[in-house]
Design a protein around this nucleic acid. Structure first.
Lengths: 190, 190, 190, 190
DNA sequence: CATGAATGAGGCTTCATTCAT
DNA sequence: CATGAATGAAGCCTCATTCAT
């Protein structure tokens, strides 16, 4: 299934460069070196390739994030959190095009797609809220409006990812991971 | 110039509800109760109305944010910062449609528009960086990668605004402002 | 609404000459001397113009046929029947294109359209059955399977119309009408 | 040549159910359980299978109809005619799909195909005309416009066949044959 | 003989923009 | 100033047919 993979690759390039609407099926065909009919052999529509790309990236992200475990034999929570951020950065860096598609193009396309993304981010948010609650029971996290704070953190993450992926002078991954975590944990005050 | 204002109002409603691409000029016409020709009397293109709306919102935001001043007779920095966040929330709430257009629709439309928004956010970022540096000279802000941290804060803000505007059970403005500031300043740790 | 009429005229010509499937929207545009967009200003789809044409012809036919009335002051049944056949021939001759579309092209296009035509012919059949029953009560018509006989007569009529419309050497209308009626009434035996 | 027969069988089913245009080669492939390439091994095109089906049915009909013979040792003309109608009904009932394809789908497809059918029906018409003339010389048939009357009879037959094949409550074949013949011979009058 | 992946011509429809009145 | 009929470029998708394996 070389062809399908090639189409996905081409589509991810085209979508991330031109954006969903500006990208035409013809652009993808050209980028993939494939004929019109072949495209529709593997995907029922332009929208469908796009969704496939989005789905792929959602899975990558889901795989990268792991619930923080407490208990003997487990790494310290802070380390686990840093690892999560680090894995997120790795996967995002590895799939630059897909990440940019997810972060910038997958907005306001479709009710169905909007819902899919909304629920995904909602799940991420809930996951963060859970971490906050856990931290609170452990006495590590200060009391706060967990919903809002989870959302704030999610927004901070999304923005920094786009920023990191699109700036030429990409900073070192571990430095970025460290700064993100410090920011979320301690804010900016001394 | 009642007509122009009416068109802007209608466009902001339509764009925020349907999104830039799904919205048709016909939708705006209908919402404004204006004929096709009249539309092009006031705006050269669909894109132009959209840009006008974006511009308006950018100005509102610019107006809402004021540089933190230190010196005798000035309010304490913390208060000024809280006021900034509060004014931001006020203006965003006042212009719900415009805000959603800016935050959700004004993405990947156009190189020119992308550049305009990029520079705007760049300016906001720089403004935040400035604030961080000021805080650092005053010994209030811990040393950190100011560029990254400014960006993180910007992302946190953008996300929370969308969240706040689109959730039914909107939380009280001052509560949200307080949480935002606490988050940026102290993070989540005790 | 000159344009809509012109489009209908052009479409009836194109459809009757090329058939529904072979006819392209471009053919109609050319025949009407109208641009692509204009077509869709007046009709939502190729199918819709076609259906409009069919509808028109169905109405013409419906108008042409009148129930046979018995009673003092009414023309003799035979005369009324002959008048019906004659009016049918007139309307069919007047709308040559539409008639051929209805008789030859409006077949197996669409479930909805098929149903519309099926019901129309069913109604015609029922109308004929009614006439047969009336004739039977009057002692004029021999007992027979009215449903079948109505259908046989309908088929005879449809076929003769196509034949009459498409042969170069068109026979005189009143002659054809006379022959049709004689056939239905007396068959071929002496 | 099992394959070819299977394809024809599948095609007749598909064409009669979906109609020529709505039927896709893929439909036929699926119904026949055969691969794409194989189809084109046996038939040069979609049109060609269709035409093969039509040809088959035309032959069946041709075989069913036999010229009425007069002379010592021959069955009475009326009986021969009734036999013809009966054989027609038999063959049509035996090849339900093919019959419906011929009667409903084989219209306006192609100049070549149209011509083939036109000539076939022309031949049938001529055959009927011959029968009428024979009847007239025998003093059995009244003088009439033989061309028109032949066409009327042909139309009556075609319509009744479709009707008979598609109605659920199919009436008994001999009843239908009897009614057809009575109709053609005596019409509806007493 | 059989397969099924690949092809690309061709058709329908949308919608931003123009312009004569 | 206002109108709305007319335009046509542009894009998506279908499906009969081919051909290398």
């Amino acid at each position: 299934m070389r062809r399908r993979a090639e189409l996905l690759r081409a589509a991810s390039k085209v979508f991330s460069e031109r954006g969903y609407h500006a990208a035409t099926v013809a652009d993808i065909l050209e980028a993939a070196g494939v004929s019109r009919g072949t495209f529709y052999l593997y995907f029922p529509s332009k929208r469908a390739v796009f969704e496939a790309l989005v789905d792929t990236m959602l899975e990558h992200i889901t795989d990268a994030l792991q619930r923080v475990r407490v208990g003997p034999g487990e790494a310290p929570p802070l380390v686990q959190m840093l690892d999560n951020v680090d894995r997120l950065l790795i996967v995002v860096e590895e799939h630059r095009h897909l990440s940019l598609i997810l972060l910038r193009e997958a907005v306001s396309l479709d009710d169905a797609l909007d819902l899919k993304l909304t629920s995904f981010y909602e799940r991420l948010s809930a996951w963060l809220e859970g971490a906050l609650e856990l931290g609170q029971t452990m006495g590590l996290v200060r009391p706060c409006d967990n919903t809002l704070v989870a959302r704030l953190s999610l927004g901070a993450l999304k923005e920094i990812l786009v920023h990191w992926l699109t700036r030429e002078e990409a900073k070192a991954r571990d430095h970025v991971a460290r700064e993100i975590l410090d920011y979320i944990l301690h804010g900016v005050f001394v």
